[in-house]
């Protein structure tokens, strides 16, 4: 199957997935208890007329199907609707907030890939005490939820040592990088541990394979064998965790952004859920689904580059 056909097929699949996701997201908000109207009134008793006015303004009284398809129609025109809480276009809100989240996730991803691969590789190559130390450390990292890591990092590096700010996003690129360092570390910690362990065990498995002995028997230096054969062959296994890593980053960024007061879409999502801001929650959820699918597509496209035995397209039934 060639690249173009594969791409088109995947785009079609993505469209269907997005449609299904939109239905689930919309339905979930509809089923959840409470309504935007009651939140807007925040406990005050309102006259039936006022309540009806709000409901009419946001079309809250229409049947489910009508509301869903109206929303879907707007989406197709690039219109995410208006935020009930912020009284502005949701697309404006997203455009304002998305950069900090993307920067935060990107920084965390760089940390995860750099530290995770390096630690895993060192553990597998060195073995012995180094291996045990890395195993224990990564076990600790894997066992620490990101919000706990956030509180610990804040307490130590922001409150005690004053190396980094305790919260906020900062203005300008340099300030943003500085403000987002601790959140990125908090977000990355668990995944660094996970990726290090995956890399280590994948490399240990390759180490036991005959072609590694053969390469050594031909005089290829051990260091080169580790890179060209062991690490190289472990990459396929490592790559399969790529989708999982990015989805975990997107989910955990909600907690970390709230803990550090980073004004990204994660924090916005949390606030919007508590305020029953339907359009905003729906838009953010759908954006995250879209991002996740793009990453999965990238991982699938990268796979044949890492492993020539894998062809693009669905697995053949007989082989």
């Amino acid at each position: 199957m060639n690249f173009l056909r594969f791409g088109l097929r995947r785009l079609a699949e993505m469209a269907v997935t997005l449609l299904a996701a939109s239905f689930v997201i919309f339905g979930a908000m509809y089923l959840a208890p409470g309504s935007p109207a009651s939140f807007l009134l925040s406990g005050r008793s309102a006259s039936p007329a006022a309540l009806e006015a709000i409901n009419r303004q946001y079309h809250l009284d229409d049947p489910f199907a009508v509301r869903y398809f109206r929303w879907l129609g707007q989406l197709l025109h690039g219109d995410f609707g208006r935020s009930i809480t912020y009284r502005t276009d949701v697309s404006r809100l997203l455009a304002d907030r998305l950069p900090s989240t993307l920067l935060l996730v990107a920084m965390a991803l760089v940390l995860v890939v750099a530290a995770g691969l390096a630690l895993g590789r060192i553990a597998a190559v060195r073995g012995g005490a180094v291996d045990s130390t890395i195993l224990v450390t990564t076990t600790l990292a894997v066992g620490t939820p990101s919000f706990v890591a956030a509180v610990l990092l804040q307490g130590l590096f922001a409150v005690r040592l004053h190396w980094f700010p305790a919260g906020g996003t900062g203005d300008g690129p340099v300030q943003m990088l500085w403000h987002l360092t601790l959140p990125a570390v908090a977000l990355a910690l668990y995944l660094i541990g996970m990726l290090a362990r995956v890399t280590r065990s994948a490399m240990v498995e390759v180490l036991g394979q005959e072609h590694v002995t053969v390469a050594l028997s031909r005089g290829v230096p051990r260091r080169k064998v580790m890179g060209r054969h062991v690490f190289r062959n472990a990459l396929g296994t490592v790559l399969t965790t790529g989708g999982l890593i990015v989805s975990t980053l997107l989910v955990c960024t909600v907690l970390v952004e709230s803990a550090f007061g980073v004004g990204g879409i994660g924090q916005l999502l949390e606030l919007s859920i508590t305020t029953k801001d339907f359009p905003t929650v729906q838009a953010i959820s759908l954006t995250m689904v879209g991002l996740f699918m793009l990453i999965n597509l990238a991982v699938d496209l990268a796979h044949p580059l890492v492993d020539p035995r894998i062809a693009l397209g669905p697995r053949r039934s007989a082989a």
Binding site: V214, H229, R309
Partner: peptide, 14 residues
């Protein structure tokens, strides 16, 4: 050395 099983002795990814 020429090894017994060439399928296992040559890295499949290179």
């Amino acid at each position: 050395m020429i090894f017994q099983d060439p399928r296992a002795a040559i890295n499949p990814l290179r």
